[in-house]
Design a protein around this nucleic acid. Structure first.
Lengths: 211, 211
DNA sequence: TTAGCATTGTGAAGGAATTCACAAGCTTCT
DNA sequence: AGAAGCTTGTGAATTCCTTCACAATGCTAA
């Protein structure tokens, strides 16, 4: 299979969201043009994105909504349930543990971890916070797929190294550091401060000094 | 000024983080090679990124750490304090209101809003939750720069329209919808579910079927 | 059954971002 | 002062991504 650009995958997620919307409203077909309008892109882009995976449309008609949705779910690996652990039971970790959006899309939180002994054993929204010391054992037993890291920046690299060793294949990192992981591990960084700096840059350079 | 790619701005944020690290450790100079190694990129990329804004290095030596850090802060608009409001005092909104990383980098939260009457007036970590109804008045009075949206998906478009009308120039959206805003508004989307789907895709397509 | 219309799928063109590669310039050593 | 050794800054080459443009096809109506 050809290498798929990250931007393409992001757009597929987006299309799927719109399709589910259409599905609920009982619409039978949709054109690349309509999908593009919603997603703020072009119809050619939509078709090209889909073409990497096959041809799902009918010329003259568009795409059958439920079929295309099903295909996208399949492509994105949403046909199955993924097991997720959250490491770091601070504010963000706790908020994520309770986030409905995860479960809705097949991401099942199976454990919440912290290394702080005063937190271990406490419950948050149905989860008993586990001791980070048991990480490796639990991951193997529970067949965890994805780790979400919401630990302090200075602990993140150490934790991710353990996570990777324990056999997890994908990591979502909220700590504001650049983690080193082997090539075969999927890593996404979510960095609030960095996003805000993007906005700050835009605001600061808005003063119309184009030349 | 030439249009700067978003990816470039992201990397500048990253470089700045490393530089501040070096600054603390009292290092005087750093080469593009060292910056690149930290950021997982190449030295040519680092130099190209910087070259859009001027030439800050000394051939044969590298970059003076404090000077480059100062220049980057300036470029990213971090020389001043930005006023931020958080709209939506749910789990994520509350977690963000308390997030230290914002204040540290000059983003000052000046208000937290919700439309739920049972929440309005309550306090979270030093903020009294305000009624969304007073948004427009407050934004004008407080000269707010950035709005962070952590409202439910079906309310997001309506809220952002009000936010934009009230004169805010930058929006960070956590709701899983694609918002429509005028061109001159800076908009960043943070979508946890979409990030997870990126990981899911990577996991599902990992099965080594390259051809 | 054929004409007319709509929309896909895709090579080819165009544009944007990254990487290459090297001259230019600063520092240090002798 | 000259030579050797680094490292920057930047055009040129390359790679990657997006947009164009149109033949191919399916649907509808007469």
């Amino acid at each position: 299979m050809k290498r798929i650009a990250e931007s393409t995958v992001r757009r597929l997620s987006l299309y799927l969201r719109f399709l589910e919307d259409f599905e609920e409203r009982g619409l039978a077909t949709i054109s690349s043009d309509e999908l593009a309008a919603r997603g703020g892109t072009t119809s050619a882009q939509v078709r090209k994105d889909l073409s990497f995976f096959g041809s799902f449309g009918k010329r003259g008609l568009g795409y059958a909504v439920p079929e295309l949705a099903a295909r996208l779910r399949d492509i994105l690996g949403l046909g199955r349930e993924w097991k997720v652990i959250i490491i770091g039971a601070g504010k963000i970790g706790s908020a994520l543990a309770q986030y409905r959006g995860f479960t809705q899309r097949g991401f099942h939180v199976v454990g919440v971890y912290d290394s702080d002994p005063t937190k271990v054993g406490k419950r948050i929204d149905g989860f008993t916070i586990r001791d980070l010391a048991t990480l490796e054992k639990d991951v193997a037993r529970d067949e965890v797929d994805i780790a979400v890291l919401t630990v302090p920046a200075d602990a993140a690299q150490q934790v991710v190294t353990r996570v990777v060793k324990s056999g997890i294949g994908a990591v979502m990192n909220f700590a504001p550091v650049q983690l080193q992981v082997p090539d075969h591990i999927a890593l996404k960084n979510v960095n609030m401060a960095m996003e805000l700096e993007g906005l700050s840059f835009a605001l600061a350079n808005r003063t119309g000094l184009d030349e």
